[in-house]
């Protein structure tokens, strides 16, 4: 464990806390894409299959449980909670995310570390996470004004993988046989997808203005 990875995990956790806070405090999920939340739940379920078979550390196990539980809780909340589900922007959240699932699964069948179920699902979760934010970014562009908590949620979600890239550079330099091409390339693509969001987020922060993504 290095400081970059810890910072990345904490930032990721923070993004989930901000999202839970937004939904709980405002009893509304307006501006949040249910499709992105479903993709994230799928990412965690596909990636943490080894939750019960491989014990890595208490920290690792606890974080996996927290990520799986929180992502499922958010999907449940947006689908079934009587008050919250009414504020879901169903007509704006129209990204065809099934193509993302199909495309990344096919890619995982072709590009993986080992042609075993666990490795294929692990690679699938890595590729899917890279594109999971797309429905959310499309929704933000369509919904025009972005409320602060939603903007912070997306910002922290993008920032966490940037910390992971520093972690991979650090591990590459300090560990002899460290190579994680799948995670690294996918992580760079993932962070790149946030680039324009980061740009507009920075502009809105600098001008102290409302965050607006161009349609």
């Amino acid at each position: 464990m290095n400081i970059f990875r810890l910072a990345g995990d904490m930032t990721h956790l923070l993004s989930i806390i901000v999202l839970l806070l937004k939904i709980y405090a405002t009893k509304s999920c307006s501006g949040i894409s249910l499709k992105t939340q479903e993709l994230y739940a799928l990412v965690f379920l596909a990636r943490y299959l080894d939750l019960f078979t491989d014990f890595i550390s208490v920290y690792n196990t606890i974080m996996k449980v927290v990520f799986i539980a929180s992502s499922l809780a958010i999907v449940w909340c947006m689908r079934l909670h009587p008050l919250v589900k009414r504020s879901y922007d169903k007509e704006l959240d129209t990204f065809r995310h099934y193509f993302l699932i199909g495309g990344t699964f096919v890619l995982a069948l072709v590009l993986n570390e080992k042609f075993t179920l666990q490795e294929i699902l692990w690679a699938f979760s890595i590729y899917l996470e890279a594109v999971a934010i797309l429905p959310q970014l499309v929704l933000l562009q369509r919904s025009g004004n972005v409320d602060n908590l939603t903007g912070q949620y997306v910002f922290f979600l993008g920032a966490y993988r940037a910390f992971y890239i520093l972690n991979w550079i650090y591990r590459y330099l300090t560990e002899p046989r460290f190579t994680r091409w799948i995670a690294c390339v996918s992580g760079i693509v993932q962070t790149g997808i946030y680039a324009d969001f980061f740009y507009y987020y920075f502009i809105s922060w600098k001008n102290n203005s409302k965050l607006k993504l161009p349609a």
Binding site: H12, R47, D54, N60, M63, N167
Partner: peptide, 10 residues
């Protein structure tokens, strides 16, 4: 034997 801690990251 110690399984290769391959996916030791979240």
């Amino acid at each position: 034997f110690q399984k290769v801690l391959y996916h030791d990251e979240l």
